[in-house]
Write a protein that binds this DNA or RNA. Structure first.
Lengths: 110, 110
DNA sequence: GACTACACATAGATTGGCTATGTATTGATC
DNA sequence: GATCAATACATAGCCAATCTATGTGTAGTC
């Protein structure tokens, strides 16, 4: 029974959005995406590999990302993910929906 | 494919919290809880019956609610749900977790 | 007597993210 | 040169939460 705020599902349904947002900075490999989200969220969000890679694959299938093999800064092979135009559009929609959702919930919980 | 913001799962995992919060006002029957959440959220959140009643049952099992049959204002039988002390405590915890979670996500999405 | 709103309830499906596991490489430490 | 931690990708199987769909029944209205 781990602390809820340790995990990516702090709010289920938001993982794709966090990944897409991270990739607006620069194309990144999976491990780097997870590190970035963890750091920016001040360790509040820990993206598990078992969530991360399936999500990256889902989003590639949907056309929101492309990827290619490359070299990580440490010299290891790594798959670099890049946001597509469709991915940017999707991100915009998800962020807008998210803001509407928390606004609605805030009204209920005051 | 309905509009996300039409449904209770605007943010999955928040339904129990919304119900608990609603019951801090006064004991209420299921239908009334759903109406209240819908109104306060300005129609942004629609609690489906197939989500509502299972949730009410889960929370009773966990001891967060009690219930008893009564009369609705329109003269029909209705099951009234009442928040327990454990339910109040749970609500506090869920609201705190929720605030932490959106804070963390906001940091990532700016 | 038909229809709408009210009211509760369950079955079955879907989704998302989890845990657990497996592979493999690099760099540091002993 | 062996061992270990960190880096890196990936899949299988599970679980929880909510959804859709469906069913029952009553009160009030036209």
């Amino acid at each position: 029974m781990s602390n809820k705020t340790d995990r990516a599902d702090v709010l289920p349904g938001t993982l794709d959005m966090l990944i897409l947002k991270t990739l607006t900075i620069t194309p990144m490999h999976g491990y780097g995406i997870a590190q970035h989200i963890q750091q920016v969220s001040r360790e509040a969000i820990q993206v598990e590999e078992g969530s991360l890679y399936p999500s990256l694959q889902r989003m590639q299938v949907k056309g929101w990302l492309t990827s290619e093999w490359g070299q990580s800064p440490t010299g290891r092979r790594a798959r670099y993910y890049r946001l597509t135009a469709a991915g940017k559009k999707q991100l915009g929609a998800e962020v807008a929906d998210f803001r509407k959702a928390i606004e609605a919930i805030q009204r209920v919980i005051q």
